[in-house]
Amino acid sequence: METRYANHPDDSKKYDTSELRKNYLQEKIFIKDEISLTYSHVDRIIFGGANPVDNKLTLKAGDELRADYFLQRREMGVINVGGPGTVTLDGKEYKLNKYEGLYIGKGTKDVVFASDDKNNCAKFYINSVPAHKTYQTVKIDRSMAVTAELGDQKNMNKRTIYKFIHPEVCESCQLSMGVTMLKEGSGWNSMPCHTHERRMEVYFYFDLPEDQRVFHLMGQPNETRHIVMANEQAVISPSWSIHAGIGTSNYTFIWGMCGENKDFDDMDNIETKDLK
């Protein structure tokens, strides 16, 4: 598990390209037959991927958590972005196809990831945050998600938002998680942009052609920066930072949030003309 420390906005605005990427970008989410995780000190979110190919993968707590098992004091969300697979929780199997997810409650001891077909392996994207209470584990597909159609073709931001881990879908302590799919011909996400001082966020970009890129925008509204991102990469967004992007092609991304509340619309909106 890799550790990333929190960064002050006054420090971050002085970073060059390599420093921005070192502190905020995770380029390797999926590694064959590994569970690859990043522990961020921003609200102590853990994010990453499980990529079982030839072997089943068992989630371990690791020294970073100093826990008897990974979810002893945590909850977790999982969304499959690859081929069909199975997540086994304390002996109970949950089949997940692409764009299907799980909310996993605190106290689940054994978590095992497996692919149905090594030639079309599952890719389980993971978000985990501290939890104070145990809520029911729930399998979630897009038919269960709270759905919103936003944007328009004129502004190149036509997209569908699927809210997977959301109060109208399932209970959680503080984790919110969902999928946003951009329509063909659209490239902008989350623009006009916003911050939310009460929550941090991690974006995971996927379904992006290998020769295309997303220019992810971050920083304070009057000190914006960008990070160029490829397919299946993730970026940390502290509460003080905007989080938006423009792609050279349409794409899909998973957003995961944790912090003070679970109110999706709790945003400090910023007019595009005020960005610098």
Score class of each variant (00 low, 15 high):
142 R>D: 07
117 D>G: 10
142 R>E: 13
124 F>G: 01
142 R>W: 04
149 E>W: 05
152 D>E: 07
120 N>Q: 11
109 K>I: 02
148 A>R: 10
127 N>E: 06
155 N>Q: 00
131 A>I: 09
152 D>S: 01
157 N>R: 02
121 C>T: 14
113 F>G: 13
126 I>K: 08
135 Y>W: 14
160 T>M: 11
122 A>Y: 09
152 D>W: 04
145 A>K: 03
148 A>D: 07
146 V>D: 05
112 V>D: 00
123 K>P: 05
118 K>C: 01
132 H>N: 13
153 Q>H: 14
127 N>I: 09
149 E>D: 09
161 I>W: 12
132 H>L: 10
116 D>H: 15
168 E>D: 12
132 H>W: 07
167 P>R: 01
140 I>L: 00
166 H>C: 07
162 Y>M: 02
146 V>E: 03
142 R>F: 09
155 N>S: 08
161 I>V: 15
165 I>M: 06
144 M>A: 15
135 Y>N: 14
129 V>T: 13
127 N>W: 09
131 A>Y: 09
145 A>W: 04
109 K>L: 03
131 A>N: 09
164 F>V: 05
137 T>M: 03
148 A>L: 01
133 K>S: 05
154 K>L: 15
141 D>Y: 00
119 N>D: 11
126 I>Q: 07
138 V>P: 06
131 A>L: 07
148 A>V: 07
117 D>Q: 03
118 K>W: 02
124 F>Y: 03
